[in-house]
Amino acid sequence: MELVDEVRKGSVRALAKLITLVENEMPGGIEAMEKIYPLTGNAYIIGITGPPGAGKSTLTDRITKELRRQNHTVGIIAIDPTSPFTGGALLGDRVRMQGVSSDEDVFIRSMATRGSLGGLSRATSDTVKLLDAYGKDYIIIETVGVGQDEVDIVRTADVSILAVMPGGGDDIQAIKAGIMEIGDIFVVNKADRDGADRLVTEIKMMLGLSSTEREWTPPVIKTIATEDQGIDTLVEKIKEHREFLVKSGMLACRRKERIRCEIIKMIEHEIYRYLDSLIGENKDFFEQRLEDIVNKKEDPYLLAKKTVETIAKRISKNANV
């Protein structure tokens, strides 16, 4: 596998090509990842999520600058939504990362969700591994930021940062709606605006109300990312949290949990591929069954069972080859 070797030698071009390969599920992708996997585990993964307008990209830019100042290398994955109607996407996060975009030790990749829910794209975890294997010290993932379904970040990152901003009042609603639990660190960005202190108090209150027992109390940090204020404190907290995870053994637990989820997803995805091609090859057959099921001539349970059996046969046939 030429590309993998080149990535190990430090080729940016090969790294970029491999990400494309994996993202497009092109031939050779899985084989490459098999070779990549043993090389992973050294990078620390930071997830940044929060509602639109909270300044996630600018925060990413500034955190990166601070990490670079401390001589760490950084990989960034910035995710934007794919249009469900056209399949296209506008990826505009680089605009706010001008400060680091021409730094040789920073690699930025914009990715579209391509139909995946949960705030990340399907290829995110593989891209993380590639950046890890390439040798980046820190990897920052910036999620789509729709505010509600961003829970995937917890499974992918070592530390999840939830960014919000004062004003509007929608933000705190978004937090209440269920993503409150995912933050290891809270950031109130644009803290020069009215209501910043109130927002900090509200978040602290909500964290206090939470019934879950915590060994780590998520800090709430005020930043003005555009003016570089509070960023050093934020990076300090990221490192403190890392130390906590390492000492308490939770980092290993989290990473094990992550792999567990990934394996299940890989299996689901693999099985789904069989299903997808099976249905694709037998469109008319399935249409007819559907018609019969609607007219109560057949029942759906039988069809489901038989389909699973067919997929199982195909899988075992492939395995034997």
């Binding site: 600018t58 505009g92 605009v95 706010r96 001008q98 400060g99």
Partner: peptide
Amino acid sequence: FGEYEGTSVI
């Protein structure tokens, strides 16, 4: 004063 950073909205 510092510099304004472009925030191209698209």
